[in-house]
């Protein structure tokens, strides 16, 4: 049995096909073909760079490489790893679509990186660039971690003096959005907000309730927490201006909907 890693560039589609549709079609045909050839592995995409890790019998892998080389949607194919293995490290064939900002796949990327790293044959400069692009988030993450070792020892009681944000919604497989999360996630996604301001909005009956939802997000690794260095001076002007800010009163429609849904919930929970 063998493991190979193959770097490619996804070519710009000529017709009106969008990039995402193009990627999807390449993945979908690979999925079918690899199933026939009993190949497992992964398909990592970042912008126009595609890295495939494939595990299977040598003849099947040869077929894949032959096919990939002939695929007009893909160019610059480079096999950067070719090694014999005892047992596969993948159980199926999957796709991971990466994005520059997203940290969600970090652990996964680290695992892949360790599978290839020492044995990889990056022959050209271009291969090195493409390879680093795929792994940039963990490579830069390593640097960050070295700089802020205290990040992990963060405790739930200390949201004070922090700036909070989220880059994306929590995955339903990790954390189901509940009524409380519904209130705070839209404020955090793609934004940063001071914890203090979140408290002032009085979205919940108590600070503990707010903290418990923030804690859920933190545990699902969906929350970005930035410690603000000097809480007394930083943003003090803004904070002062907004001192009496509260949640804007919902309009009549929103209020009617809320009443209806909560009434409905009570009906449903009756025996």
């Amino acid at each position: 049995m063998k493991r190979i890693a193959c770097l490619c560039t996804i070519t710009e589609p000529e017709d009106h096909t969008s990039h995402s549709e193009n990627v999807f079609h390449i993945f979908d045909s690979a999925r079918k073909f690899n199933k026939e050839q009993n190949i497992v592995g992964t398909f990592l995409v970042l912008n126009n760079v595609l890295l495939q890790i494939l595990e299977g019998e040598p003849s099947g892998l040869a077929n894949v490489v032959y096919r990939v080389n002939r695929d007009p949607r893909i160019s610059n194919v480079a096999v950067i790893l070719n090694t014999a293995i005892e047992t596969p490290s993948f159980t199926r064939w999957s796709i991971k679509l990466l994005s520059e900002q997203c940290a969600a796949h970090r652990t996964y990327l680290q695992k892949i990186h360790s599978l290839i790293n020492e044995k990889s044959l990056l022959k050209t400069n271009e291969d090195r660039i493409r390879y680093n692009k795929i792994f940039q988030s963990i490579l830069s993450e390593n640097i960050k971690q070295n700089q802020t070792p205290e990040e992990d020892s963060y405790t739930s009681t200390s949201f004070n003096n922090t700036l909070l944000g989220m880059s994306s919604w929590p995955r339903p497989t990790q954390l189901r959005v509940n009524a409380g999360l519904m209130k705070i996630c839209p404020l955090l996604i793609g934004h940063t907000i001071e914890y203090k301001k979140l408290l002032e909005l009085e979205l919940f009956n108590s600070a503990q309730e707010l903290n418990s939802y923030l804690q859920q997000l933190r545990e699902a690794k969906a929350l970005t927490i930035i410690q603000t260095q000097d809480p007394s001076n930083l943003h003090s002007f803004e904070a002062h201006q907004n001192k009496n800010q509260q949640t804007p009163r919902p309009g009549r429609f929103s209020q009617a909907l809320k009443n209806f849904i909560s009434g409905q919930g009570m009906r449903a929970s009756k025996p």
Binding site: P186, L187, H191, I193, K197, L201, N242, P248, S254
Partner: peptide
């Protein structure tokens, strides 16, 4: 609802 808050607080 949150888009109204987002305008000012975040």
């Amino acid at each position: 609802q949150s888009s109204a808050i987002n305008m000012e607080a975040t």
